[in-house]
């Protein structure tokens, strides 16, 4: 498309206006987190005259935000490790051993991407209750491990493994290495770019997820994730937007910082599933 490039100031202007439309809501949430309530209502779009940290202090007084934060980090970390392990190992045989049984199982797994999470979630909670797993981390991890995340990530992994030449493993199998060792020592290290995408994709999805933790963990104080905490906080202090913004800034800051540092990987990771479909 390079040849169609022309000097079109109108185009630059239109895009700049749309970009402002995208920036204003994020900008206003950010600056108002550092303003007093009266400053926010008086001049909502002005940058703060001084950095007011009262909102953040109040958030810490009213909730155990540190615990909420730790909770989200812990849940995201463990879930991502489980998802990457399950989907990478599951992908390997589908890419390498094309038997009839494998192609049947493959289709059976891929159907999972199409099942609306609500369909299984409303009954899953009843099953978890029967085993005393609702409201527990284990219940949440198992829910993620069994969800559409694994088929989707597996699908991305299969596409990537297909691009790796088979000769590598064949020479390893002559050496007498077991299939598992071949996979973990030779193939998995070569999947690094794909694993990077999978980590970003699933990590962000789980950090930002709302319905699953709300359903499985409930709103119990010790077990809130950041999204559930924002929701219940906003429900309690409906008009105190500067307080809500302070919570939001803390919840979104690590994500935004990572995004700014690794824009290319983020965009690649978040669209990896879609582009290959």
């Amino acid at each position: 498309m390079k040849s169609t490039k022309r000097r079109v100031p109108v185009l630059d202007l239109v895009i700049a206006i749309i970009a402002v439309l995208f920036a204003v809501p994020m900008y206003s949430a950010f600056v108002n987190a550092f303003k007093t309530y009266s400053d926010m209502t008086k001049s909502p779009l002005k940058p703060p005259t001084y950095l007011y940290f009262g909102n953040f202090i109040e958030v810490f007084e009213r909730t155990d935000f540190l615990a909420i934060y730790k909770n989200s980090v812990f849940i995201t970390f463990v879930s991502v490790v489980i998802l990457v392990f399950l989907s990478a190992t599951a992908a390997y045989p589908f890419a390498r051993f094309k038997t009839r049984l494998n192609s049947i199982i493959y289709v059976f797994l891929i159907i999972g991407i199409m099942i609306p999470s609500g369909l299984s979630l409303i009954s899953l909670i009843k099953i978890l209750m029967r085993f005393g797993l609702n409201g527990t981390y284990l219940g949440l991890f198992l829910t993620y491990a069994g969800s559409w995340w694994v088929p989707l990530l597996m699908f991305i992994y299969i596409g990537f493994i297909n691009t790796i030449p088979k000769e590598l493993e064949e020479s390893a199998s002559i050496d007498g290495a077991s299939y598992f060792r071949t996979f973990w020592q030779i193939i998995f290290p070569m999947l690094k770019p794909c694993t990077g995408s999978a980590i970003i994709f699933s990590g962000l999805g789980i950090w930002n997820d709302f319905l699953t933790p709300l359903f499985i963990l409930g709103g119990a104080d010790g077990q809130k994730t950041v999204t559930v905490a924002i929701y219940s906080f906003a429900g309690k202090y409906t008009t105190r937007f500067n307080l809500i913004f302070a919570v939001m800034v803390m919840a979104a800051l690590p994500v935004i910082v990572l995004f700014v540092l690794m824009q290319k990987q983020f965009i690649k990771g978040l669209t990896a599933g879609a582009v290959k479909m």
Binding site: T89, A90, F97, L101, L109, S120, M154, Y179
Partner: peptide, 25 residues
């Protein structure tokens, strides 16, 4: 033999998928 090896790879994923998505569905 290949099916058996394959199963040892995707078995865990398949098991949790059946238990926590297909069964509740």
């Amino acid at each position: 033999k290949l099916n058996l090896i394959s199963f040892s790879f995707y078995g865990p994923a398949l098991l949790v998928y059946i238990l926590f998505t297909i069964l509740p569905a």
